[in-house]
Amino acid sequence: MLKVTDLHVYYGGIHAIKGISLSVKEGQIVSLIGANGAGKSTCLNTICNLVNNSKGKISFLDRDITSAPPHKIVKLGVAQVPEGRKVFPQMTVAENLDMGAYVRKDKSGVRHDMGKVYKLFPRLLERKNQLAGTLSGGEQQMLAIGRGLMAKPRILLLDEPSMGLAPLLVREIFSIIREINSLGTTILLVEQNANMALSIANYAYVLETGRIVLEGEAKVLAADEKVKAAYLGG
């Protein structure tokens, strides 16, 4: 469904991604794990064409989207839940969700999906009219995920959804990710929390300073000695 081939990304003189290839099959959860600065966020941003200087090929549903403008990519069904949430701080929770559905024209479908998001995150319903900037970090994360879902994406790119959350909330968020996936949305999940990520993913890639050093079935990777040593805390 999503296919990245031989991708290079440069920030000025820095060669941040040095030729990676990956693919995500429809219906799967694919995880991209790696240490700080490995290039995970860069990879997601490049898929959405938010980065200027890149080489390589990206295709989605067999269409070349390498140089499609960002808003067209969203229209095709790729939504990103960015690192650090990036909710619209001066808009209410409801307005943020509404913005998520910006590219959609089917009003009744949007209303229906808004109901679904509120069912997934009852906390957001309680705070519907609160300004997003005043939400707690965990609530902002829920809102960011909800906003991503409102685009009714075919694939959802999640960038470190567990960052800065209490362990209990992390578990809740991950079970919600699984639920979203079981409802038919394909997921590409970037994570530092390799343990959790590998536990829900079908397939995973390990990224190290801009290169993929390991890939395979999530279960296999979770059992791999090297991965255990480097990412799973022994």
Partner: peptide, 10 residues
């Protein structure tokens, strides 16, 4: 409010 986020919602 957030140009990147605006791009991400299309």
């Amino acid at each position: 409010q957030d140009r990147d986020a605006a791009q991400m919602v299309g």
